[in-house]
Design a binder for these strands. Structure first.
Length: 215
DNA sequence: ACCCCGATCTCCT
DNA sequence: GGAGATCGGGGTT
């Protein structure tokens, strides 16, 4: 399945997007967040334009899964940039992160929301509770459900052409806004949630709980 | 063995 | 738009 997926922007974009490379993503999580906004994630049967992300750093970021050091669960965050870090949450959901930084240094960008650009029928089958198209991948676990991402995708290389899940470059055709990360009380003054202004697929902001730690 | 963590759905107002 | 119910796994004891 090789479709020339672009965002909703201009009809003048007739060329296929180039696949994102390791070099694109081997940068600080805040920079990687900006690379990923407006780009397309493509999985078997479904593609989506990323409209909301959150940056997570390493030992200096109390909200990051990597804050307390490397464990079998979070080991992918220490690996090469461009790999997918999938974690299980709430006993029923998955969340997907794109690893960034250089190998040996943890960092990742959580994919929080996207607009389905290809395969909305399949996404709707996977997300029967969605009442609007813009709800199909609005929220990190919904995004994984819509794209069919699960634990079997943990660690795969998104920059590999043969990979089942891949990233394609795109432009943020709207202004990028930022604010505190969702549910993260620690570092609440660190505005590392980024989204595209005006997208209806941006997930609702929830006030961090008092004890909030996270990813 | 225990404690802590969190996204989504449903139903209600 | 908001409140309450839902669960399995990771990390630590």
């Amino acid at each position: 399945m090789r479709q020339y997926v672009r965002g909703v922007s201009s009809a003048s974009n007739l060329k296929p997007s180039r696949q994102l490379t390791r070099v694109d993503l081997a940068v600080d999580p805040v920079d990687a967040a900006h690379v990923l906004l407006g780009s397309t994630i493509e999985a078997p049967g479904v593609a989506a334009r990323i409209v909301e992300v959150e940056a997570y750093r390493g030992a200096d970021d109390p909200a990051s899964h990597s804050y307390r050091g490397r464990t079998p669960r979070n080991a992918v965050m220490w690996g090469p940039a461009g790999h997918l870090y999938v974690y299980f949450i709430y006993g029923m959901h998955y969340c997907a992160n794109v690893v960034c930084m250089t190998e040996g240094v943890p960092g990742a960008v959580l994919l929080r929301a996207a607009e389905i650009t290809t395969g909305s029928d399949l996404a709707t089958e996977r997300r029967p509770a969605a009442r609007h198209d813009h709800d199909l991948a609005r929220g990190p676990a919904r995004l994984c459900a819509a794209l069919g991402i699960g634990r079997e995708h943990n660690g795969i290389d998104l920059t590999e052409p043969a990979s089942p899940v891949r990233l394609y470059a795109g432009e943020a055709s709207q202004p990028i806004l930022s604010g505190p990360r969702v549910g993260v009380a620690a570092a609440h003054d660190t505005p590392w949630r980024f989204w595209l202004d005006g997208s209806r697929a941006v997930s609702p902001y929830r006030k961090p709980v008092a004890r909030g730690k996270g990813r």
